[in-house]
Each structure stands twice: as C-alpha cells, then as structure tokens.
Write a protein that binds this DNA or RNA. Sequence first.
DNA 1: TTGACAGGCAAGTATCGGCTTGCGTAACGT
DNA 2: ACGTTACGCAAGCCGATACTTGCCTGTCAA
Lengths: 110, 110
Amino acid sequence: MGDVFKALADPTRRTILDELTDRNGQTLFEICSRLVAKHGLGSSRQAISQHLDVLEAAGLVETSREGRYKFHYINTTPLEPIVERWLKKAGKDAGDRLSTGAGTRREGST
Amino acid sequence: MGDVFKALADPTRRTILDELTDRNGQTLFEICSRLVAKHGLGSSRQAISQHLDVLEAAGLVETSREGRYKFHYINTTPLEPIVERWLKKAGKDAGDRLSTGAGTRREGST
DNA sequence: TTGACAGGCAAGTATCGGCTTGCGTAACGT
DNA sequence: ACGTTACGCAAGCCGATACTTGCCTGTCAA
C-alpha cells in the first residue's frame, strides 16, 4: 500500500485528481490531453501513467479495464482520516501560546 | 511559502505533528527526546531541526523564542482547505463506474 | 567569567522521486 | 492479415531531499 501523503506531494498528481473530480472515469490519453489543454502541463504519457500508478497504489484512484481502454476513477475515501488526525484536537489548546511552554523546559535530557 | 503537501509527505514530520498535538509548545530537544522514547525514531537534533523548518515554512508550525528556548506550536489552519478540495464533490458521482466512461472515449486526440 | 546548555548555519553525502527513452503487448478498425 | 490505437514494462538520468558532520552564536547557572 502506497503512502497517501506522498501521493499528494506532487502538484501534477493533485492536478490529476482535480481533473478526475471534474470528470470521473477518464482514460490515460484523455487525462494527458486535458492536462495540456486546461492546465498547461506538458507531461508525457509515461509520466502521467506513472503518476496514476502512484495514485492507484495509494488508493486514491481506482481503475477498470474495458477492451483496450482503462478508465480511472477518483476515490476520496483515503482522504477523510488523514487530516482528522491533527484537526480533532485543534482549537482546544489554541491560545496557550506562551503559557504552557513555561512548565515544560525541565524535560529533554537523558 | 512552503508546500503543505510536501511538508506532510515525510513520516517523521507527521510524527512531529502528532507529538505537538499531544503536547503543544515543545522545544527542539524535547521533541527529539520524545521521538526516541515514544516512537523509536533515532533522528539527530539537526535532522529534527530541519524538519521543523519545513513545517514552519509550510505554516504548520509556529514558533516563539523565550530566552534560549524556542517553543514550537502546531497550527492546523493550513490543513483545513487541502482535502476539501476533492472531498466536496465526493459521493455525487460515486457509482458511475462503468457508465460515464463509455461515452468519453472519442476524446483525447489531435 | 567560565562552562554547560539550547539552538543555528553551512557544506557534503546518499538515497529517493520524477521524467525520459525505447521497446513490447493487447485490443480494435478495415 | 495488417496497421493503428491505447497502454505496459524496464532501465537510465538528473534534480530534489533527508541526513550527517563540523563549527559557531547566544543564554543561563555557578
């Protein structure tokens, strides 16, 4: 299983997800064409193909073959838990800024 | 301004955010110690320092100096919009699977 | 003032990741 | 059958990045 975060690290892959959000179930060549047309990206077919592999390994894209066509579908399921991880506790200790730290400085050794 | 996604791409940096979520406002040495103790990571001080720089550049960590101590605070604000980007339209075209793609195969040429 | 502590800066190394290049394969049209 | 189309595989290249190494600055306690 690939790393969802690393899959999202590349701007091109994020644009691909944008493109699949706009129109789900595109083929490789479709994605290539539309990346050039709408986003001005001049990536080669192989490059996009490898990006799609990464996205698929991360579970963000699912595929289905139909004859010689392979359709790509976005899957946002892996996206849901990744931010909750840090967002949950957010807000509770906002504003602690310079107060909490004062009591913690004794730590950090051996 | 650093890239939030690239900042999240590294597992060590994610663990640092976990650690700051657990206890906000830690110093560098504190973070180093607790990473070793609780997570078994043997990263050097400089390595962690550089990770914190990346996190700070991405806006995920804010700092405040107090004497010779520098305290680190997590900031989840940049996390909120990044997933919404694709999550918003999710669910609306789920189940389209093999139907939508069939009509799109004429594209992708020139 | 001296020494220990917390942290910063910069160069070098090494691994990883994105991209290209070239060829191969399977499905379609005619 | 033959050529075209859509895609896969694998090796190599090169820039990015994570980590180390070494030294330096500033702060505090005694």
